[in-house]
Design a protein around this nucleic acid. Structure first.
Lengths: 250, 250
DNA sequence: ACCCCTTGTCAATGGTCTTGACTAAGCATC
DNA sequence: GATGCTTAGTCAAGACCATTGACAAGGGGT
């Protein structure tokens, strides 16, 4: 704990150079991870750093500016150790799973930054890896561009959506999950016959299943549409086997 | 304009029953549409209604409660006139496009409510329509459940993501769009060779193109995986033609 | 030794949501 | 018709929040 006077302010002035941008980003991320979106305010950040709440303005222009730095940190974390595989299918699946892992590890931070663009090196690198995979798949020019945007926006928004849900208050999340286990289980067969038919199966679905299923659908579509199938043995022989392959690769 | 005293407060007390929940939801939606997320605060809502800012607590438990009511209003608007077609492919595509239209018409409201669940009739109805289409496609039990979640979560998160972006400050949005037209256009060929290769095509991609492409990929995956192809002539004969069909149907 | 620039501090502004007490309007009952 | 109860609208206050401008202290360079 830091020495404080009676009014809660710091007792002694911090030595110069104690605070760095990197450190502020790290502490913000920690606060977001531990206390959620609500635990991330400038007063709280200042207290956690043992500094005055306004000290951070010496390192960032605004809270939004800090947010972009956090976003880039997340992308860096996601990219750490990423190596494009020879097989473009594996590369895309790898990028998608990596981003999801990072976002699920930092849901609050992800929910605030998923729909932003940083244009910093880490992001540019990820973009280039994805486009590289699509070029290897034989997409060219305008089609390559739109397919890139389709894939990237899909992965970002889906995982960002998961993160947004996970960063809601725990009670709200529980109420939501209960909906599937409760409300839908006792649904009126006359009013909602289709829902009633699969009511027992609905609560069983896990988030991982959902993600892998959507990813499988998208990758299946890409495989079918790609001018050039990927060279590796698993995907080249039977395109229809991609769903199974994806499930096995987990 | 409402009569106000010098201090800005209302001059006369509103007659009883002037405010209704429905009316508050409508006015909130109008504020969100016109002034974005930042224009939607309780003081501003009170001013717009010509009432005291705290009057709304007589109709909603909290601002979050009001948000859920707004979410359901959006779903109602989306469902208005929805008729499940015989062809399950058309039904799913229709639902997806309708949700997107509604979200793009109310981006600020959508960005706040896309990842919430209301469990009210409008939502239940939409769920039942989607599940109905998937059952007609031949999916059953656990597979039907996971495919439903995959499709629904995909549409919600993707369109919610678009809405989130559209509800950012205009300057931030512009900076983002400029990235594709500017930063990526002058990217270093040595560092990001793949991006460089399609740099001129990247800024040309429109949001509509992106959405229809992802939707085409997902629907293609579903068509390939569905036990029972849809009966209608367009999709039954040649499954691979789905992308073209989707594009033509716009 | 001097100055300056940077960095941390502080006080103040104007905004947010929410709460509890107050008031008056309409309704049912007598 | 008068009485009292419930309830919708009002008001003041509290506890937060981001941001700004002035102030002070300390280190590096001249």
């Amino acid at each position: 704990m830091v020495d404080r006077r009676a009014d809660g302010r710091r007792a002694r002035r911090l030595p110069r150079g104690t605070l760095t941008a990197e450190q502020i980003v790290s502490e913000s991320l920690r606060l977001l991870d531990e206390h959620g979106v609500g635990g991330f305010s400038l007063p709280k950040l200042g207290r956690a750093l043992g500094a005055d709440p306004t000290a951070f303005y010496r390192h960032f222009a605004s809270k939004d500016d800090l947010l972009l730095a956090i976003a880039d940190r997340l992308i860096e974390e996601q990219l750490d150790g990423l190596q494009p595989s020879e097989c473009w299918v594996d590369t895309l699946v790898d990028v998608a799973r990596r981003l999801r892992e990072t976002y699920l590890a930092h849901p609050a931070a992800a929910s605030l930054s998923a729909f932003r663009t940083t244009r910093r090196p880490a992001e540019m690198h990820a973009v280039d890896v994805i486009i590289g995979a699509l070029l290897r798949a034989g997409f060219e020019g305008a089609e390559a561009a739109v397919v890139y945007r389709a894939f990237a926006d899909f992965v970002l928004s889906f995982t960002g959506g998961e993160a947004s849900f996970l960063s809601l208050e725990p009670e709200v999340q529980d109420a939501d999950r209960m909906a599937w286990a409760g409300a839908y289980l006792t649904v009126d067969p006359a009013q909602y016959p289709n829902t009633w038919q699969i009511r027992t199966a609905l609560p069983q679905v896990s988030d991982d299943d959902i993600f892998e299923t959507v990813l499988g659908l998208v990758m299946g579509g890409l495989l079918r549409r790609a001018p050039r199938p990927c060279g590796c043995s698993r995907h080249a022989t039977d395109r229809a086997a991609v769903d199974v392959t994806l499930a096995a690769g987990r």
